[in-house]
């Protein structure tokens, strides 16, 4: 079977890394390009399978979502959660300034 391969270039990898907020070393980019292209090749192989008449699945497990009754059972654990936070003030988490 003939599978058309999709290949990525350096700028694709840089963009993906940026969207995922990952810092990668320029030296490692060729390896990422190769690995990610291999993954896309695998997807291309799957794309070649005839799936006409197969209902798409949104999840590998063939089951439906269980629902939870609308009840409040969580208690305030702010102090515990904020113990691992680098900076808090007046109950707020502080982060570097972000403003539109």
């Amino acid at each position: 079977m003939n599978v058309e391969s999709v290949s990525l270039d350096d700028s694709d990898v840089e963009k993906i890394a940026h969207l995922a907020r990952l810092e990668i070393s320029p030296d490692d980019i060729p390896e990422y390009v190769s690995n990610l292209t291999d993954i896309l090749d695998l997807v291309e192989q799957m794309n070649a399978v005839d799936t006409a008449g197969v209902t798409p699945m949104a999840h590998p497990i063939d089951a439906v979502q269980r629902l939870r009754p609308d009840e409040v059972s969580e208690e305030n654990q702010r102090d515990r959660f904020q113990r691992i936070s680098p900076q808090v003030e007046n109950g707020l988490f502080l982060v570097p300034k972000v403003i539109e």
């Binding site: 979502q65 269980r66 629902l67 939870r68 009754p69 609308d70 009840e71 409040v72 059972s73 969580e74 305030n76 654990q77 702010r78 959660f81 904020q82 007046n90 109950g91 707020l92 988490f93």
Partner: peptide
């Protein structure tokens, strides 16, 4: 299962799921 009440002290109604801590699972409200 954290409360949605408006106007509470900051972060007192934010549980592990809302904070996105590792290992939590969302369960849908009926």
């Amino acid at each position: 299962a954290a409360s949605t009440a408006y106007g509470a002290e900051p972060n007192t109604q934010a549980c592990a799921v809302d904070l996105g801590l590792p290992g939590v699972l969302p369960v849908l409200n009926e």
